[in-house]
Simulated assay, not measured.
Amino acid sequence: MYLEDKYPHRHPLLPNDILKRAINFQAANIVSSSIQPLQNSSVLNYIGEKVGYDEKLPWAQTVIRKGFTALEKLLKDHTGRYATGDEVFLADVFLAPQLYSAFTRFNIHMDEFPILSRLYATYNDIPAFREALPENQPDAVH
Score class of each variant (00 low, 15 high):
P37K: 00
P37M: 03
S41V: 08
S42D: 07
L44Y: 02
N45H: 07
Y46I: 00
Y46E: 04
Y46P: 03
I47N: 08
G48F: 08
K50L: 09
V51C: 01
Y53K: 07
Y53I: 06
D54A: 02
K56C: 07
P58H: 10
W59D: 04
Q61W: 11
T62I: 00
T62E: 10
I64E: 10
K66F: 14
G67A: 12
A70Q: 14
A70C: 11
L71Y: 07
L71I: 12
E72L: 06
E72V: 11
E72I: 08
K73T: 15
L74M: 09
L75E: 04
K76L: 07
D77M: 05
T79C: 14
T79L: 01
R81E: 12
Y82G: 05
G85R: 08
G85L: 09
E87W: 05
E87A: 06
V88I: 15
V88Y: 03
F89N: 05
F89S: 02
L90W: 13
A91C: 08
A91M: 10
A91T: 09
D92F: 06
V93A: 13
F94D: 01
F94H: 14
A96C: 09
L99T: 02
A102T: 07
F103Y: 15
T104C: 09
F106H: 14
N107H: 15
H109K: 14
D111F: 07
F113H: 13
P114H: 07
R118E: 14
R118P: 01
L119W: 07
Y120Q: 04
T122Q: 15
Y123G: 04
N124R: 09
D125Y: 00
